[in-house]
């Protein structure tokens, strides 16, 4: 039996900044994971990934990352995505310097 589909977010890096970006429900790109679109349907996820891949002017290297529903939006389920959503642990740089980011990974 195929494994059940686990919810995903479409994520990539921004072309100019290199910063981690996520696709929002309206198809735009956002910097905070909690504002990302948590896609629960496999066909939809693949459609949105294909669309992202067709937008090379903004998003570099888009892929589908596992995520779960958190209190204020999607949260990562793997530590790599948790680091991408916050920034490095040795220096207070990257997304964690912005207000909403730490909350997004509070339960990971």
């Amino acid at each position: 039996m195929p494994r059940p589909f686990s919810p995903k977010v479409v994520t990539a890096n921004d072309l100019i900044e290199g910063d981690v970006i996520y696709m929002a429900r309206n198809g735009s790109w956002v910097r905070d994971m909690c504002m990302a679109w948590l896609i629960e349907d496999e066909a939809e996820a693949n459609t949105q990934l294909a669309r992202a891949t067709d937008e090379p002017g903004i998003a570099v290297g888009p892929y589908l990352a596992d995520a779960a529903a958190g209190p204020t939006g999607p949260i990562p389920t793997h530590f790599r995505e948790a680091f991408r959503a916050t920034g490095p642990s040795n220096r207070f740089h990257g997304k964690q310097t912005q207000q909403s980011a730490p909350e997004a990974v509070a339960n990971v």
């Binding site: 890096n13 072309l15 100019i16 900044e17 290199g18 910063d19 981690v20 090379p56 002017g57 570099v60 290297g61 790599r80 680091f83 991408r84 920034g87 490095p88 740089h93 990257g94 997304k95």
Partner: peptide, 26 residues
């Protein structure tokens, strides 16, 4: 690359030849 004339697949070997990687955050 920024204007869209080059795709990432086309640009990547060129940036790597000049020491530019794309890492986790930047």
């Amino acid at each position: 690359r920024i204007s869209g004339a080059l795709t990432e697949d086309e640009f990547k070997p060129l940036r790597l030849m000049n020491g530019v990687y794309l890492q986790l955050h930047a």
